[in-house]
Design a protein around this nucleic acid. Sequence first.
DNA 1: TGTTAGCACTCTAAACTCCCGAGTGCTAAT
DNA 2: ATTAGCACTCGGGAGTTTAGAGTGCTAACA
Lengths: 340, 340
Amino acid sequence: MKIALRKQQILAAVIESYIQTGEPIGSKTLQNTQGFNISSATIRNELADLTSLGFLKQPHTSAGRVPTEAGYRFYVDNLLDVKEPDERVRRYIDSRLRASDDAPEHILESCSALLSELLSIAAVATTPSGSEARVHKIRFVQTGRYTSMLVLITSAGMVKSRLFRCDFAITPEMLTVFDRALNEQVAGMRLEYINKAFAQTFAASFGELGLLMPDMLMAAIEACRDALSTSVYTSGATKLLYQGDLIAARNVLELLGDKTESRRLFENMPEGTNIYIGKENSSPLLRHSSLAQTSYYIDNRPAGALAVIGPLRMNYKGAVSILEYTAKRAGEIIEELIAG
Amino acid sequence: MKIALRKQQILAAVIESYIQTGEPIGSKTLQNTQGFNISSATIRNELADLTSLGFLKQPHTSAGRVPTEAGYRFYVDNLLDVKEPDERVRRYIDSRLRASDDAPEHILESCSALLSELLSIAAVATTPSGSEARVHKIRFVQTGRYTSMLVLITSAGMVKSRLFRCDFAITPEMLTVFDRALNEQVAGMRLEYINKAFAQTFAASFGELGLLMPDMLMAAIEACRDALSTSVYTSGATKLLYQGDLIAARNVLELLGDKTESRRLFENMPEGTNIYIGKENSSPLLRHSSLAQTSYYIDNRPAGALAVIGPLRMNYKGAVSILEYTAKRAGEIIEELIAG
DNA sequence: TGTTAGCACTCTAAACTCCCGAGTGCTAAT
DNA sequence: ATTAGCACTCGGGAGTTTAGAGTGCTAACA
């Protein structure tokens, strides 16, 4: 769609004003505050055009204009010139990410805290999915007479542990047997193959000894499932409660409170930066909100997502800028970690 | 304070009606719905007395009565006959707690989910504090060339792990040295003594070798700190958003979103079951809410807390009943686990 | 003395009306 | 193509009215 430059400038002005104030804006105010060198009548004509194009609407006949979802869409597609954040902000992000401790999980937790803090809206970060990963090795630590901890280390450097409990007393020898037998089989296997079927054939191949293993194997399966499934960290959802639209906020809270739902959000996200506005969202709970999402990369492959969720009139420019910078740095820092 | 039986019954009726409907209730409705054998005029007299006693108030001169905080207080102190939950509910609680996996943390997570589900309000559960616990032992698992996992096992059977990373390549021998040296010192020590001061004297006593240890010791300190500090699991806070009082809900969300704040809530709770109504709460964020809390016991000692947070007009009877039963069962099930 | 019927009184919330003013679209002049 | 001018629209705030739920008081009654 080809649209005259002045129309675009006016559209941008309306949207940015509305994002800032939340109030419908009319031709006169627009003329005064934005310093256009044209009369309000001319602006009115343009506004009428933009309205009939479907980019703006009026809450009622005699009110100012408000962007429609299509308007926001055009804005983010064509009128958003995103810059890197200020040096001060960049420094701040760096320092906060560096301060997180040595687990990727904690870095991602910091990402979501950081995003919601800087943008004053809800933020989400997902851990890398383990779907590409393989078992590197599995270790055992005895923690009690009947209990032990299984530690799974994946080829991607992720570490997951799981407690299990047997109904017989565990001896160190037994753990050595478990360790050797299990690692011989699973080392190098894709995580998703460590499932119930595998456990059965594995236990069966040990005859009587196999009877001692189900608890241990169950723990292994669960550890793999943990490593395979992405976890989702959220922050600042309550901030939305202070920003007007109660039902939108409530729905977002609902969505983010449900781990399964929020995980699903990122399952089929295309990589790169994406913005979903209102009804464009896959979840009906986001029908009145916007989601801005970007991927972070580990070894040049998209690993997980950072995202913010806010009202339709969220600060898209700032959001994209900060999202992309944070994602870049988070990827780099996690890479350093794993390289070790 | 001595109060005639009939007055008490009327007070109870008003409060229970208000809890159910949220509407002020007047003398006539009270007479009709609760089947008192006295005229509405008589009820009016009693209501006037209860009002001047400070247990009831009127939103405006010509409206029905609503309980005051003092009214709720009298109600929970004197008029609450708590029964065990139904068999069906008991079964349900049991099965849900059994289904949680073998870590106390997961059981407590289930508790909070369960409470908020059954009572439709926000629920909280805290893990046992480790303040009484001592180090049982510490184990190491190598997870990468430069990284390892430290596993802390406490005398209370709690297991915490922590990753750490050194800037030199780790060898199995080195871990064996760490293991032996560290355990010799710390086994049996109270968790809170494993702190920076300890780490310094410990590292110092190893001379040059001590220079290799700071990362490992840092991890040990953090694991102990983890084990020492109670974690707080919350569920269902969003349910409050559907129950009228928005600012109360918002404040609760705020409180529960902040781990430090919500931990503080339970720091000095007396054991047993307690109810804090409105301004009785220590946190100003709960000024418009009620908190009902009970302890669960491990080996006959109070270990942690289960609680629900809801509006002043929460269903106190159901809440206490379900809280106490859940706490009892949770304690028992955790005991079984740890006994192993 | 405790209970009750009757009644005048109070007060809110909902419905209705009125009107200001911001904002519009159209027309005619530049 | 732009602009000034103007009649028109309409939401929402202010003021008014009204219905009805609920009260407290009084006087009669058991």
